[in-house]
């Protein structure tokens, strides 16, 4: 059993279905990347898990506690960071953390030490007495993360923690998440930028149109790439004829014409191993198509994402 479990989780907003029968398991001690295009249902899932939103149907548990009936226990266990959040601009950094620590029922006697430790963890000790409003976006993001850690939660639910950050701030957040993982926290993190997640996650779940398209360990997800290849074919002419020929080939699952550059490039999804690619190239040139280049795109998780999602909601 996972530390996060959902069964048949469904959420409708009027006639719009945001989540449809979502079954999800997140194992304890993992960093689970929840990936999907904008509007796929990531935030809805996370808000249900944070006991903020009531599902239309289905159930969800965090550490065995129902998000519907044991909300207080769930809140004790999770640290939640929403995708969009505000800060109290008229508060100093230490006051902000002290306030939330008090909201998490931490006694005044230990809040001072705790605040200093949290600020050190997120590298904001030097801004302790500054007003929150004067912090950069990246710093506010780290402060919000420190806030979510005030009660030492077992599980962190982080909705797009790197969104809107500059490259340096993204790196800092990633480093922080790695450190938290090393501290034994289970991290359930969402992003629509797979590259941000790929580097730090142990597990990935891909969601689109409210449904889980794929989920597994990083190794399992990469395995999916090996059974399919993304190939670029550049021709000097006869581009439309080549596209039609490839579309009719039994080994080719999908073919599209790329509109970038000169428009003479096709991208094909080819089933099978590397031998299949060699055969396809031989047949292509043997048929008389003027092939200028034939190469495989680098197999990153991003490809899995692109292939599994159809861009329905993005």
């Amino acid at each position: 059993m996972g530390i996060i479990e959902t069964r048949g989780l469904t959420k409708n907003y009027g006639r719009i279905t945001a989540l449809s029968e979502l079954d999800l398991t997140v194992e304890e001690g993992t960093i689970f990347g929840f990936v999907g295009p904008n509007g796929a249902g990531k935030t809805t899932t996370m808000r249900i898990l944070a006991a903020l939103l009531r599902p239309t149907a289905g159930e969800a548990w965090v550490a065995g506690h129902s998000v519907l009936t044991q909300r207080r226990e769930v809140r004790r266990i999770i640290g939640y960071m929403p995708d969009f959040f505000g800060v109290y601009g008229d508060m100093k950094v230490w006051e902000y953390l002290d306030f939330f620590a008090a909201c998490y029922e931490i006694p005044a006697g230990i809040r001072r030490r705790l605040t200093d430790e949290l600020l050190e963890l997120v590298d904001l000790s030097h801004r302790r007495d500054d007003y929150v409003d004067t912090l950069s976006r990246g710093m506010k993001q780290r402060l919000c993360l420190a806030r979510a850690l005030a009660h030492d939660p077992l599980v962190l639910i982080l909705d797009e923690p790197a969104s809107g950050l500059d490259p340096r701030a993204r790196i800092e957040i990633r480093a922080l998440l790695r450190e938290l993982h090393a501290m034994g926290k289970t991290i359930f993190v969402s992003s629509h930028i797979l590259a941000d997640i790929e580097e730090i996650c142990t597990h990935i779940g891909i969601i689109e149109a409210g449904q889980l398209v794929a989920a597994g360990t990083l190794a399992e997800m990469r395995q999916r790439i090996c059974s399919q290849h993304l190939v670029r074919v550049k021709l000097t002419s006869l581009i439309e004829e080549a596209q039609a020929w490839l579309a009719g080939h039994p080994a080719v699952l999908q073919v599209e014409r790329l509109t970038d550059n000169d428009g003479n490039t096709l991208r094909a999804t080819v089933a099978g191993d590397e031998e299949s690619l060699v055969r396809l190239l031989r047949e292509l040139t043997g048929t008389g198509f003027p092939v200028l280049a034939f190469y495989e795109e680098t197999g990153k998780l991003e490809d899995v994402f692109i292939r599994l999602t159809k861009g329905i909601v993005s």
Binding site: R47, A50, A51, L52, R72, R75, R76, I78, Y80, P82, F84, F85, G86, V87, Y88, F100, C103, Y104, E105, C144, R147, H151
Partner: peptide
């Protein structure tokens, strides 16, 4: 409006 409501509601307050 300040988007701090959800932060408060996920605490034990």
């Amino acid at each position: 409006e300040r988007q701090t409501y959800e932060l408060l509601r996920t605490t034990l307050l």
